[in-house]
Nucleic acid binder design. Structure first.
Lengths: 208, 208
DNA sequence: GTATCAAACGGAAGACGCTCCGCTTAACCG
DNA sequence: CGGTTAAGCGGAGCGTCTTCCGTTTGATAC
């Protein structure tokens, strides 16, 4: 009969502690993926090759990262954490202190800058199911934040428009604008800016 | 020595005439794909099964439709042609005759209705490369049209905002809104409408 | 009818994502 | 330390998309 496992600390249970070998493998795998990416480009980062370069079985890659998108998301983890810290608790204009509208623009500009450096990785991270993009922690945090800023700024329908703005930050659209239509990042930011202006020109008919 | 082929009619050369067996196979394959879709759902529509049900080799499917997205696009062909006819030459509010702003809204609403009936097929059609969605005839026609309407309506930066609006009509976002957030089609249309209002509230400062 | 050739065909083979399941091992307890 | 258990591991195998290339065939000219 399976005896109930004793709970050493019933307080503050996170999403489950990771065993030592698991944590080790996570790092080894991320390192392998990064190396593959740097030396041969994104296309070379297949689950199979990452596993072999890391010296583990494929099953392990999936156990650690769920799927290819999960691996991409993990590779973006540092960038993501930095970004979140910046818009949640960092200095203005991105962080608290600036006017909501200013923060929204800063958020969008910063996101475009992130795409400029890591568009391909973002593209993979958005690849799973059609709705996969909308179902991960990073997306939800961003949406919640944007939605709140839009509310603060007095916009109509913040929930819808938060999703709308984030959809305009999809890697696919960015790559199309950037590398097929040859728009500069500034041009893209300007487009987003005018959209924000439009969004905020309604809602609060006159902010007096 | 290869003798030069005689040209029967040097006038009006289309994108290349399709040989009889090729045209026949195209129809057989589309029928097979439709049947599979109706009887077992979109997931059952794999290139392999379509080929077998049609009684041809897989190579033929690829020769006729290039890839899976091409097949999906072909399945949407009728709907697409109807839609194009409607907004290019049909009656108002979608076609010529109504005010540009009215036509823009009608365009978006109509697109949402199309997604409501064929979201899954659209999702597959948007699946190829990250930028695949932006590189097919249907997309380009829609973009040109929207861009022109935006110009007529006096919007700023019509080129950018045409892409923006079309990106908000992606199947992935629609499915997320519709089936995960449980928004009604009307709710989605309202969101798009308020965006359009914002877009057009600038540009022409006062249309007098 | 016959010759010719580009177009079309078929299906084997490759690459990749992902699943499944039997075996191994870290972690914890007494 | 030895027992117990959940977590982790490995890799064969499946399904799918896609490519490649040798063979076949429809269309045309003569």
């Amino acid at each position: 009969m399976p005896r109930p496992r004793h709970q050493p600390l019933p307080l503050a249970d996170g999403p489950a502690p990771e065993r030592a070998d698991a944590a080790r493998n996570r790092e080894v795998l991320l390192a392998a993926a990064r190396q593959l990416m740097l030396s041969e480009g994104i296309c070379a980062v297949s689950m199979d090759r990452v596993a072999r370069l890391a010296g583990v079985g494929i099953g392990t890659v999936y156990r650690r990262f769920t799927d290819r998108c999960g691996l991409a998301l993990a590779l973006l983890g540092d960038s993501e954490r930095q970004f979140q810290a910046a818009f949640l608790t960092g200095p203005p204009p991105l962080g608290p202190g600036a006017a909501p509208e200013t923060r929204i623009r800063a958020f969008l500009h910063c996101y475009i800058d992130r795409l400029e450096t890591d568009a391909e990785l973002h593209a993979i991270a958005e690849t799973s199911s059609p709705t996969g993009r909308y179902n991960n922690g990073a997306y939800r945090t961003a949406r919640t934040h944007l939605s709140w800023l839009l509310t603060e700024a007095g916009a109509q329908d913040p929930a819808y428009h938060a999703d709308a703005l984030l959809t305009l930050l999809s890697a696919g659209l960015f790559q199309h604008h950037r590398h097929e239509l040859h728009l500069s990042p500034e041009r893209i930011k300007a487009g987003l800016d005018s959209l924000v202006t439009g969004l905020l020109s309604q809602g609060t008919p006159s902010p007096n």
